[in-house]
């Protein structure tokens, strides 16, 4: 059933890709180039999605992550190269938020909910709570703790991978290890962005 529509879908995505790349070819401004590349990434997800199987959904995640990660690194390089680093970034300067325990309560709700969900989405939700806390508190906390947690979750993740590959009968332990590992990893990575943002205020 997918087969007869595949080429039509491909036509639409390819036209989008041609339009995006053509715009990129004519653009002179560096910042606009970065934004246009973000636009061109969308057809690349479209190519994968058109596969239309469960495999496609699993392949979209690496595709998306690679795009976001490189975009993050490039935007930092852009800031340094244009000398924009020293500009103050406004954090959440809301008096009520800064003085009351509300951010703590809200972020702990988000973190607990994220832990219940677990996995990638849970990590994103828990990280949102931490980012909000860092933004509202207006102070940089210990980056070392975050980095340590990130490293530990990485080890957990790789260990889970090797269990899956070489001791497949313990698949349940590996699944739990990978789920917890990716939860902590996403949390720490996104929280790092939160502190980087908050520190400059």
């Amino acid at each position: 059933m997918i087969g007869q529509y595949y080429s039509w879908g491909l036509l639409v995505v390819l036209i989008a890709a041609v339009a995006g790349f053509a715009a990129l070819a004519f653009e002179k401004d560096d910042l606009h180039r970065l934004l246009l590349i973000d636009l061109v990434e969308i057809p690349s997800l479209g190519f994968i999605a058109l596969l239309g199987t469960d495999l496609a959904e699993a392949l979209i995640l690496p595709g998306l992550v690679v795009g976001i990660a490189e975009l993050f690194a490039l935007s930092q390089i852009y800031l340094v190269k244009e000398g924009l680093q020293d500009r103050p970034v406004r954090a959440l300067r809301i008096e009520v938020v800064q003085r009351s325990p509300a951010p703590l309560v809200l972020s702990s709700i988000l973190v607990v909910y994220g832990v219940i969900l677990s996995g990638f989405t849970g990590g994103a939700i828990a990280a949102l709570g931490l980012i909000f806390l860092f933004l509202a508190k207006d102070s940089a906390d210990d980056l070392h703790l975050l980095e340590l947690a990130s490293g530990m979750s990485w080890v957990l993740w790789i260990a889970a991978f090797f269990v899956f590959m070489f001791l497949p009968e313990y698949w349940y332990a590996a699944l739990m290890g990978a789920a917890i590992g990716i939860l902590i990893k996403v949390v720490t990575k996104l929280a790092l962005v939160g502190t980087m943002w908050g520190e400059q205020a």
């Binding site: 890709a17 690349s44 190519f47 994968i48 490189e70 975009l71 490039l74």
Partner: peptide, 15 residues
């Protein structure tokens, strides 16, 4: 920028 644009072709091609 070039490397990021190239990922579009790589992922699109393999899909």
């Amino acid at each position: 920028l070039v490397a990021l644009a190239a990922t579009v072709l790589l992922f699109g091609g393999s899909a």
